[in-house]
């Protein structure tokens, strides 16, 4: 039987992959995707929490569950919207990097330090 913890573990794996992507990859576009992965991991967790409540019988049975579902879904949709906006801004910034350095390697940007 697939349950809450399966989803949470999957979400955790996705999140860790995202974090590792940010830490290890040098291509700005890939890093951007890794960040998206982190947000999606969070979204997955929220959806799982709505479908399989931690306390109670599970499923959406009463008004409280219904309220939690609306609440959770609102959160998920807004996170998706924000992720899209973030990509918009992020791509512009990456393009600016490319314009200046002729490269999208984030290690090129290391003039400011100390």
């Amino acid at each position: 039987m697939i349950g809450l913890y399966h989803f949470l573990i999957l979400s955790g794996v996705l999140f860790s992959l995202g974090v590792l992507g940010v830490l290890l990859r040098r291509n700005a576009l890939v890093v951007l995707m890794a960040v998206e992965l982190m947000l999606n991991a969070a979204n997955l967790a929220v959806v799982a929490f709505v479908r399989y409540p931690m306390f109670g019988d599970g499923g959406i049975v009463n008004a409280q569950d219904y309220a939690a579902m609306t609440n959770g879904m609102t959160l998920v949709f807004l996170v998706m919207t924000v992720a899209a906006a973030e990509v918009g801004v992020g791509l512009a910034i990456v393009i600016n990097l490319y314009r200046q350095k002729k490269s999208v390697n984030i290690e090129e940007a290391n003039a400011l330090k100390g």
């Binding site: 700005a28 910034i93 940007a109 290391n110």
Partner: peptide, 10 residues
């Protein structure tokens, strides 16, 4: 400025 925005954003 470009570098700052990249780091800030990432």
């Amino acid at each position: 400025s470009g570098e700052a925005s990249l780091k800030y954003f990432l």
